[in-house]
Design a protein around this nucleic acid. Structure first.
Lengths: 117, 117
DNA sequence: CTAAAGTCTCACATGTATGTGAGAGTCAAG
DNA sequence: CTTGACTCTCACATACATGTGAGACTTTAG
């Protein structure tokens, strides 16, 4: 499919799809015209990217993780221990983020329910 | 206490403490010299601000919520229903963020444990 | 008194994801 | 062939939290 359809399928703007490609997260092939050509798999990849971005990972970290996820089952694991350490750190950061979210959610709830029982 | 101590107590930079004040989140009194003077309560307020920021709320939204939290017990609730609606939206956003975090955490775990069983 | 540490304001810079517009090429339908 | 929809690259802009440095004043310690 071309970019327009991927936009429709994912809800992500053209601009961002091109940006993700520039950051090495997506590598569509090209038609003779130069148009990008995406596959079904890209739809899921974009979804993952959005999810990881929402979790606060940077595009460059995502670039590290994505290939591993795509090769899931064939256990393509990151090679250098550097990367693993970094991922562990991200995971810890996520755990902390979840704690913060829980607390903030609670705070919001407090205010919302105070608005009217 | 003056700003330096608050920096030590909270781990938040001078720059940010002044920024939070500029955004209406913090209102220390001033000494005759013009120096800011913070109270014990401000330590906790800063902690809350950090937590809400981490949850993805903007400083202006936080400005809305903070007074309600500070008056907790005296149930100072937001007045206009506009605000409540906005807060509900934030809460929903947080819920989604938590789902994303869970999913991303799982993805990271997958990669990390693939690195070596 | 003096020096050093603390603080003030102001302003410019940065990073990262994202928007927006211009100008040109491509493709499909009439 | 022409028009309109789609796509391309490129570049400049934005929002927001945050860093950094300059120049001046205040406070504290020797």
């Amino acid at each position: 499919m071309r970019i327009g359809e991927l936009v429709r399928r994912t809800g992500v703007s053209e601009r961002l799809l091109r940006y993700y490609e520039e950051q090495g997260l997506l590598n569509p092939s090209r038609l003779p015209s130069g148009y990008r050509e995406y596959t079904e798999a890209h739809v899921e990849t974009v979804r993952r990217i959005r999810c990881l971005l929402a979790a606060g990972l940077s595009t460059s970290t995502i670039a590290t993780v994505l290939p591993c996820l795509e090769a899931r089952g064939e256990r393509l694991a990151p090679t250098c221990p550097d990367v693993v350490g970094q991922l562990r750190a991200e995971r810890d950061r996520i755990d902390q983020a979840m704690r913060d979210l829980r607390e903030s959610r609670q705070a919001l709830d407090l205010v919302i329910s105070a608005a009217r029982g």
